[in-house]
């Protein structure tokens, strides 16, 4: 299977601190990969580096996406190649209709696409199509709209930073269904999560600590290692 994303020996130093330390891993096309790790392990920084966000250009290393070196490309250039990111805390945008937001990155910019995307995240299109993406939405609603927008975009790879945070237990099953449905449209996912129930649907899991990958393998195995070995780890010491 071809690799849609290759992160090769990437380092990032910010304000004199090592954030990412020689990180190397890859995501095969159309697969679900989970990134596990404690708070401060560098997971969100990794997402920002891959997407090319401001302040997150690697100090060294190389990122290849769909066989193209994207290390020095801008965010929109990466997005137009089929790479996107759903932030952990999505922003509110005053006055922008939810339907228009969902369709921003979609290839088929029609009402049907927006409605289908909302249904996928269990939000009633009749209610949400005309609402705006403002602060009246709850954190959970906003997260689901973000996932709907990513689904409508049908990217080659989506990085989802904590897609389950702020989402209630009832909706979480629907979100898991949605995450699995990305495979059907040949979208690979990089799932950044703390929750074992989300990680377990992945094909492969990576465990991050102190800015590097310390273990990879089947999600169950990596998660067990995370709980047993990292529980007492204080970051200064990496588990053997």
């Amino acid at each position: 299977m071809n690799e849609i994303l290759i992160v090769d020996s990437v380092y990032l130093k910010k304000d004199g601190r090592d954030i990412v330390n020689g990180l190397t891993f890859s995501v095969p096309e159309g697969t679900l990969c989970a990134i596990l790790g404690r708070n401060g392990a560098g997971k969100t920084s990794l997402a920002s580096i891959i997407m090319g966000l401001s302040g997150y250009r690697p100090t060294s290393g190389r990122i290849t996406f769909n066989n193209v070196n994207i290390t020095n490309l801008s965010v929109p250039e990466r997005a137009r190649m089929g790479l996107t990111l759903a932030f952990q805390n999505p922003v509110s945008i005053e006055g922008l209709k939810i339907s228009n937001y969902i369709l921003l990155g979609a290839k088929d910019k029609n009402e049907k696409t927006a409605r289908e995307a909302l249904e996928r995240v269990d939000l009633d299109p009749d209610i949400y199509m005309k609402r705006t993406l403002d602060k009246s939405l709850s954190g959970g609603e906003r997260k689901r709209i973000e996932l709907a927008a990513v689904f409508a975009m049908r990217p080659r790879l989506a990085i989802l930073d904590e897609p389950d945070s702020g989402i209630d237990a009832i909706a979480i099953e629907k979100i898991k269904e949605l995450l699995l449905s990305f495979k059907k449209i040949n979208t690979a996912l990089l799932l950044i999560t703390h929750r074992a129930t989300i990680a377990e649907i992945a094909d492969i899991a990576y465990l991050m600590d102190a800015g590097r990958i310390i273990k990879s393998g089947p999600p169950k195995e990596v998660n067990e290692f995370f709980i047993t070995k990292c529980g007492s780890c204080f970051h200064s010491k990496l588990p053997e």
Binding site: M51, S54, L96, T132
Partner: peptide, 20 residues
């Protein structure tokens, strides 16, 4: 940046935000 992750250029993103 959020709008850029959907493929909009900086200018296009600014226009969308201002129109909102």
């Amino acid at each position: 940046e959020t709008l850029e992750t959907r493929g909009l250029s900086e200018e296009e993103a600014i226009k969308v935000l201002i129109e909102g």
